[in-house]
Amino acid sequence: MAKADRLERLDVRREEVEAEYRDALIAALRVAASGQWGLFDHQKDKVARTRVAPVIAALGELADEIDGMRDTLGLEPFALHQRFMAARGPAAADAVGEPRQAKAWLEEMGAATA
């Protein structure tokens, strides 16, 4: 019974950290949607990379914590972080810009603002 209680508490904590990750990602997406480039790292801009590095590091730390809990609970890795990281990096010349991409993510996450 003690193990079941421990796993239940861990699952509650996982949900809390996933919500924290989601909130942090939404905050970063809102900044990007307002016109600040760098979150998706589409351009090789050292200044933008430096500016966004703490955000990416914080999201990575939260994702690592979440994945550790998910592994213990026998759950799949945290898909939201994997998807976000896959969206980062060089983009095709005809791809939408980072602000528009961030707005699309916000809409998809139900966090779009008027």
Rank of each mutant, 00 (worst) to 15 (best):
G38S: 10
L7D: 14
I56T: 08
E107Y: 12
T113Q: 09
G97K: 07
Y21P: 05
A92K: 11
R49I: 01
P99K: 09
T50S: 15
E108D: 11
R100C: 08
T72I: 13
G97T: 11
I56K: 07
P77E: 02
A4M: 05
G110L: 00
R22M: 07
V31R: 15
R9L: 15
A112L: 08
G89I: 11
I66V: 10
V47L: 07
A112M: 03
T50R: 15
R70T: 03
M109S: 04
A111Y: 10
I66G: 01
R83P: 00
V31D: 07
Y21W: 12
I66P: 07
L75E: 13
K3D: 13
K3M: 12
M109G: 02
R9C: 01
W105F: 14
L59C: 05
T113I: 04
Q101T: 10
R14M: 14
E76S: 10
E20Q: 13
G97M: 07
E18K: 03
A2I: 09
D71G: 09
E61Q: 12
L75N: 00
A57L: 10
H81D: 13
A93N: 11
G35T: 05
A33K: 00
V12F: 06
A33N: 02
E98R: 11
L106H: 08
I26W: 02
P99I: 08
R70M: 04
L75R: 03
A91N: 10
A63G: 05
T50C: 01
E15S: 12
M85T: 14
R30P: 00
R70Y: 12
P90K: 14
A19S: 13
E108F: 04
G35V: 07
A57C: 03
L75C: 01
A32H: 05
R6W: 05
G38E: 06
A2C: 00
A79F: 03
D71N: 07
D11Q: 13
A114V: 04
D45W: 14
E20N: 04
A48M: 12
Q36P: 04
K46M: 09
A95E: 14
A4T: 06
Q82R: 15
W105T: 07
A87H: 06
L59Q: 03
L10K: 10
G38D: 06
E16D: 11
G97V: 06
H42T: 11
L39M: 08
R88E: 03
E16R: 13
E16M: 09
A27E: 09
G35C: 04
A114T: 02
G68I: 03
E61Y: 06
E107C: 01
V52A: 07
L73I: 03
A102G: 09
D45N: 15
R83M: 09
R51M: 07
A93I: 10
M1N: 11
E98C: 12
M69V: 00
F84R: 04
E16S: 12
E15G: 15
G60D: 09
R100D: 15
V47F: 14
L29P: 00
A58Y: 00
D94W: 14
A4C: 00
K3H: 09
E16K: 11
A48L: 08
A53F: 13
M85D: 13
T113H: 04
A27G: 09
R100Y: 09
A27R: 08
R49H: 15
A19D: 15
Y21A: 03
L62N: 05
G60M: 06
A58R: 15
H81G: 02
R88F: 08
